[in-house]
Structure formats: C-alpha cells, structure tokens
Design a binder for these strands. Structure first.
Length: 387
RNA sequence: GUGGCUGUAGCUCAAUUGGUAGAGUGUCGGACUGUGGAUCCGAAUGUUGUGGGUUCAAGCCCCACCAGCCACCCCA
C-alpha cells in the first residue's frame, strides 16, 4: 500500500468544516475590502532567503528545496507573506495606489517533526495591508484578526503584542541583551549558544532558559522615540476598541522581516502548538525584495490549529443532513424516483437509492443520512401521480 | 534533528507467567412483498504497523525501520 507523506493529511469527512471555516474567515476580510491574491505554491529559493532570513530556522532547516530540470533552485513556500510581496513588486501594484489590501489562503510547507497542530503541509489564511506606516493600520489589522476569530465562535484566545523596534533602536537593544546574557553563556542550552550570535532576540522565547529571560532587559525600555510613540498609540487604539491584549516582551517571532509591532494569538489549551495565529509589521521587506520602500503589516492564522481550537470549544457546526430521501418500493419505480429527486433538487438536498436496497434498507439509509423527509414512490403513487 | 510513550477488525478496545486472536460498535442480510431509527437472529472482514531475531511455540521478549502522540525545537 502506498500511504501519504508523513506530516500530510487527507481531508475527507472534515471537508465541510474546512469549507465553512474558509468561507467564514473570507467573509470578514471581503467586507473590509480585501482582495484575494493567489500566488504559486513554489518560488525561487532566494525569495525566502532574502525575506524570511537566511539565519532563521525556517530557511536553515525547514524548507522543501529542490532543483528543477532547468537547474533552478525551487522552494515550496514555507509562508505566505514573502510571495505576496514578490507579486506586489513584480506586478507593479504600487502604481495602483495605496493602501493595497490582500488576503491569501492555501497550503504551506515546512519540514518539521509532525505533531498535533504541526503538519509538514499545513494551511494558512493570511491578511496583508500594504502602504501605511501609521499605527491605525496596525489597529485595523488586529481588529480584523479578532473579528475573524469571533466570527467562527472562538473566545478563549489571548492576544499578545510586543514591539521589536526598528533599524534605529534594535541594534542598541541587541547590544544590551548580549551584555546581559554574556555571563550566563556557558549555562545556556546548546541552541541558545548558537542563537546568541545569530539572533539574540530568540533567547527570550526559549523554554529551557526561560529563567534568564525574566530579568533580561526589555525591548520596550529601549525603543527609540518614534517606535515608542507608535507602540503607545497602538495600545491606546486597542484600549479604545476594547480589545484585550497583553504586552509580552518574549514575543519576538522567528522571521527576520518584522519591525515594530509583532503579535500572536495564543490558545493555551492546545499545548506546545498553541499559536493559532501571528503576524506583525514589516516596513523594510518590500524594499529588501527590490521594491520601493513601502511599509506594511499582516498576519496569518493556521487553519489546522483553528480547527483544534474550535473542537476544544465545541464550536464545530453540525453538518446538515438531507432534506428529502426519495424511496422506491420496487425496482420499477427506481427511475421515477430519480426523476422526482432531480425535480426536488432545485430546492432541496436530496438523495435516492443506487444500491438496490429494499424498502427497509432505504428507510434505514435515509435515517442514517439524517433525511428530514422521505418520499415513497410505489405502484399506487405512479398511478395516481400523488406522492 | 533530539528524548519518551504507543501501534491488534472500518472505529473503540480485550487476550493470565510467551501456548497460535476475541468483544462492543459499525457494515450487510433476515425476522417484516408499502414504511425506517427499537428488539431478536445471522453473516463478512485481521499476513496483530513492516522486516528481521530469540524460542518447540511470539500480539506479548530483542533489534531495525515506518507511522502517530507528548515534550524539546519550531511556528501557524
């Protein structure tokens, strides 16, 4: 038997839940004027090297990268933001005026050890707002994310926000962090020893060395005036909208392109894979990819994790059964039953027997399919024309 | 990539100290030639995750691999 690739899934019984979830999320963003963008599932490897960052774990060890027959290095997209920005630049969307508002939905690929809530092929629904440097756009993006969660019935999530500063203030914070961690360097876990040089910020969210993070200098104390004003304004906006959040200095994100605002939606009961969504501002990314300097902010939800959370809260809608099952008493009425079902199908969800079941079997099957009504067709009905 | 736990019928699980695989549920049929979901009766389905090894004998013990779960890690 040939079985599916590790970390992938066949969605069969659940396909209705997926459909409902996709439609619900889509409705919120469409009403806010966002347009769907569909980019290829694979891209030039360089795109992710340059955007996500060549020192990140995603690029270093999690990408599905291969060479095609023309010798090009291709990568199955591990995330959605970089491809959307590539498309933005390549199609000159800048010229259509700002802001530009996009959402995307589809499979992403990361080579990781699978676990509940962590697949090698997983699905993200993402939203990007391109063009505004203002904190009001941060507020809008977070508001939309919260509305999306509420629209599918999720309540027990926690929003955590932080600011990672910009090119002016982050370097001084990085120095301060390095100075703080230096005396403990030998006691840190092996991963953290590597991170110390590559990306000190990541030390803050290490679970093993969490005790050191508690007293570490906080980014919020090192923000430059502009970044601090931006962050304070965003917090005020969130307060005004009565969106609950917690400032969490350990939210640093594993992608290099983030600047200033970063945030995560946590769903604590999901265990280790409790981040159901996350995002942030990436004011330097478009320029880094060769476009003109354009600020932007966005986020993505993990569909598989949303479904786990929905299950926890018992918010998965029950799939509706049939309206009408058309039963034929004998073989002779089968075709009449099919014709009647066809006529009814303009208005109702219908089904007929194709398995040659007898009368009892058809009734059993009708009730198994949760049919609300049964129409019985026999000799008598055909004669009278009354069903 | 690292460590730990698990793997028996479609599903949920049994199987004494190793002695040659069973129940519930579901599926199909019958009791009931035009009214199901209740009840009763009957039937089908397994190379016990895969491949080796130990043994007279392995679902059970040992090794490897595969897959799932938990944690690390990673992030959605």
């Amino acid at each position: 038997m040939i079985s599916r690739i590790k970390g992938t899934n066949d969605i069969i019984e659940d396909s209705k839940v997926w459909e409902w979830l996709e439609e619900s999320l889509k409705k919120v963003v469409l009403n806010f004027g966002f347009v769907e963008i569909r980019t290829p599932i694979f891209e030039a490897t360089e795109l992710f090297d340059r955007s996500v960052g060549n020192e990140t774990d995603i690029v270093q060890k999690e990408m599905y990268t291969f060479e095609d027959k023309g010798g090009r290095s291709i990568t199955l997209r591990p995330e959605g933001t970089a491809p959307v920005m590539r498309a933005f630049i390549e199609n000159n969307l800048f010229s259509k005026g700002l802001p530009q508002k996009f959402f995307y939905y589809g499979p992403m690929f990361r080579y990781e050890r699978p676990q509940a809530g962590r697949m090698r092929q997983f699905h993200q629904f993402g939203v990007e707002l391109i063009g505004s440097p203002l904190p009001i756009s941060d507020a809008m993006i977070i508001l939309i994310a919260v509305e999306m969660l509420k629209s599918i019935g999720l309540n027990k999530f926690k929003l955590k926000i932080n600011s990672t500063g910009d090119e002016k203030c982050r370097p001084t914070y990085v120095e301060a962090l390095k100075a703080y961690y230096k005396p403990f360097l030998n006691d840190l876990c092996d991963d953290c020893k590597v991170r110390y040089d590559r990306n000190v910020l990541r030390l803050l969210d290490c679970k093993r060395d969490a005790k050191y993070a508690e007293n570490a200098p906080k980014i919020t104390d090192y923000l430059c005036d502009d970044c601090k004003a931006h962050f304070d304004r965003l917090r005020k906006y969130l307060d005004d909208m009565e969106i609950e959040y917690e400032v969490d200095p350990s939210i640093v994100r594993g992608l290099d392109y983030y600047t200033r605002t970063v945030f995560e939606f946590k769903y604590p009961s999901l265990g280790a894979q409790d981040a159901i969504g996350g995002g942030g501002r990436y004011d330097g990314l478009i320029e880094e990819l060769g476009g003109s300097k354009t600020p932007a902010i966005g986020f993505a939800f993990g569909i598989e994790r949303l479904i786990l959370a929905l299950n926890e809260e018992g918010k998965i809608p029950k799939t509706e059964g049939l309206d009408i099952y058309v039963i034929s008493v004998d073989e002779e009425q089968k075709i009449e039953a099919l014709k009647v079902a066809n006529a009814l199908s303009n208005y109702f969800k219908v089904d007929v027997d194709v398995m040659g079941r007898n009368l009892k079997g058809q009734f059993s099957h009708a009730s198994k399919e949760n049919a609300r009504y049964a129409v019985v067709i026999g000799e008598e009905e055909i004669k009278t024309g009354l069903y």
